[in-house]
Design a binder for these strands. Structure first.
Lengths: 167, 167
DNA sequence: CGAATAGTGGATTTCTGTATCTACAACTGT
DNA sequence: ACAGTTGTAGATACAGAAATCCACTATTCG
């Protein structure tokens, strides 16, 4: 659902938010957050270009957050490295679908919008666990639709259609 | 956000739902829905193994839906070919995170849950456009969180840090 | 100034999802 | 039974993401 690039970027930003007093080096973040060090530097560069972190070279250098963690949303970080794409036009290249989205893609886009909204309203500051009680409050009751149930329950195992040798 | 495999599977199922009277061949679906024919056959096999469609070989053969379109959710189709994975344990392999999800991954999982709920409650039947008015009703008001706004607006273009030749 | 530290950017490799091809098995209608 | 049609399955090719490597530039500190 989320790319590992996004995952790494989030871990890095959370780490920086947890250590606001000193610049953190790529190696330090990599080790603390279990991210491949070589790749992390690329990810941090993307975050720097997006204005989320700042880099400082040389000894005592490293990365710091550009603004306070409560002003950075989870969505900001994800969009910096691996933007969430909304569906604005029907990927089926048919004349009928040119103008509006068909119901299918409209629905898929709604799902993406839900994710955008949820992650856009979640700040990095909220993601810092206080190492005490893991304050995971439940969220978003549900949306206004009842689940459907298939007539036949999903077969636990594949039907396994027989394969006789030859008649 | 959604893989092209999922996209293809959904198109195929929507096509079958739109033509419930006769089996549709792979080639027919491929052409109608602009899906690469060779790949579609693999996707249809996955759908068959998941019990969503049935295959019939030989002349007059093709694929048909296993159950009525209003008993198949969009989520069913996606899960058949490219399952949506919930985050059940923290991917950061640290002792502290072993037991519960950290706030970060708890939040990401909530976002995934929203998608599951939304797509699980949407039937394929609802995705068939009646070729009239594209009945896309708006959905899911929003969830209970206000968006945050960064102190500094996201820079429109990358900061473009200077690159002088050599002093 | 010079040495050590740290980020930068390009080339390269690996891996996985996407897509094609082909030989084969199953089915229908004659 | 035969011929033609259609799905099945395995091997293979391709592309983009993930990850690594290395030479280079910038910065700090003695």
């Amino acid at each position: 659902m989320f790319s590992s690039t996004s995952e790494y970027a989030l871990r890095a930003v959370v780490h920086l938010a947890s250590n606001p007093d000193k610049p953190c080096t790529t190696g330090e973040i990599a080790e603390a957050m279990k991210v491949p060090a070589g790749y992390l530097s690329k990810v941090l560069q993307s975050l720097a270009r997006a204005g989320i972190v700042s880099a400082q070279r040389g000894p005592t250098g490293g990365f710091t957050l550009d603004r306070h963690a409560d002003r950075i949303s989870v969505l900001d970080v994800i969009n910096a490295v691996d933007p969430i794409e909304r569906i604005t036009k029907c990927p089926i290249d048919l004349p009928e679908h040119a103008a509006n989205l068909c119901p299918l893609h409209a629905r898929l886009d709604e799902a993406i919008a839900l994710v955008q909204t949820a992650l856009g309203a979640s700040t990095i500051a909220e993601m810092i666990e206080k190492r005490r009680g893991m304050t995971t409050r439940p969220v978003a009751p549900t949306i206004g639709r009842r689940p459907i149930r298939p007539t036949s329950a999903r077969p636990a195992e594949a039907p396994k259609r027989g394969r006789k040798p030859a008649r």
